[in-house]
Design a binder for these strands. Structure first.
Lengths: 202, 202
DNA sequence: TTGAAAAACAAGCGCTTGCTTGGTTTTATG
DNA sequence: CATAAAACCAAGCAAGCGCTTGTTTTTCAA
């Protein structure tokens, strides 16, 4: 049952780091939430920072693993973009705490570990840039500034973790579809003049 | 010179809160950066949280004040959207530290003060929604889910604080124009087939 | 049922935290 | 130049921090 306890501690720590931040959360907060005394925590972890690293690193891996098959597929770029967006949003909505910690708290890591996460972030952003580059090369997208388009796109979809409500009316897939629609066609267009439907086949 | 010192302390605190977070920054960090002993800081402030609140509240006011004239003008909605986006980005780029603290650290405030900031955030988001609603009513924009469009839009432009480089090649206005172009027309469109230019008259 | 490993407790150590106090120096004004 | 207010320093307090230690309880295979 040792591993179950460890997972439970990671879960509670994720929740606390999400709401109070890493530095705002104490070892005693985590132990109390885990129904344990603070000293007993150290049967399962080495340091507080280990918790942050493990949560953050797992988050990074979730994003990487979910995007890889999309990038490597040979769908057309528009479909790839949609799939990538939905995949990203699903990682966030299925792992709200971990994703929030990954976005917000990774800077609290000390140098060495922060650079490990930084590398994974770079790799992830590189995968997005490949998708956009492919779309441009094949003529599916406007000629675009790749870096700028990627920054814009990722900022927009990363924001989901700040407002997503599991009990809300929009499913992750619906959110992803609407994002894709806006990104492809934009707001502009007169009344009634419906946008071409990019929402496609489920 | 009292007020000058206070402003200097606020500036140093902003920088530290930005890089290390509120809970990750100590009173001694701030006093050291201000060239003062930690006790002497209390000649100028009452508590550490006062610093956070003042920085955050000023940030909120900057956003509100810059958007108000845009909302109240009688430009057409497309132009209004562009002006609003540029205004927002200018607040960020002209006040990188304060804007970052405003986005990242306001949750560290205690209840009463957090709710003051929350109200200002709500007011700000309401102003954006008015712009979008007007665009839809006049037929400038597609029929859109207002709340969703606003969330998407604000997420995208808020991201600027995470990657903006004052020494970079893109000016705040150029960034705003590109945002506006993407938001209005999207990525989609074949090679060479240039997007209609929404970047307009400077 | 027994015995050793794993898990949890009880206590607290050394250090840092935000902040206070009492005295000294600097600054500005008549 | 006198002087009071403002700014600062030197010292340190009480509380909380991450983490360790020594001991007791729980778990579970032999």
């Amino acid at each position: 049952m040792s591993d179950g306890r460890r997972e439970q501690i990671l879960k509670k720590a994720s929740e606390l780091f999400r709401t109070k931040g890493y530095h705002g959360t104490t070892i005693r907060d985590i132990s109390e939430a885990s129904g344990i005394l603070s000293g007993s925590l150290y049967t399962h972890i080495k340091t507080k920072e280990d918790l942050l690293f493990e949560i953050t690193d797992r988050g990074a891996e979730l994003f990487l693993r979910s995007l890889r098959p999309v990038v490597e597929s040979d769908e057309d770029p528009v479909m790839k973009l949609r799939q990538a967006i939905v995949a990203h949003i699903l990682v966030i909505t299925d792992n709200l705490e971990a994703a929030t910690v990954f976005f917000h708290e990774w800077k609290a890591l000390t140098k060495k570990r922060r650079s490990i996460i930084q590398e994974k972030r770079d790799a992830y952003e590189g995968m997005w840039e490949r998708i956009l580059a492919e779309g441009e090369e094949t003529g599916s997208f406007h000629p675009i500034d790749l870096k700028f388009a990627r920054l814009f796109l990722l900022s927009a979809i990363n924001g989901v973790y700040q407002w997503y409500d599991p009990k809300g009316e929009l499913s992750p897939e619906e959110i992803g579809d609407r994002f894709t629609a806006i990104l492809l066609s934009g707001f502009a267009g007169g009344k009634g003049e419906k946008s071409s439907d990019h929402r496609s086949t489920t």
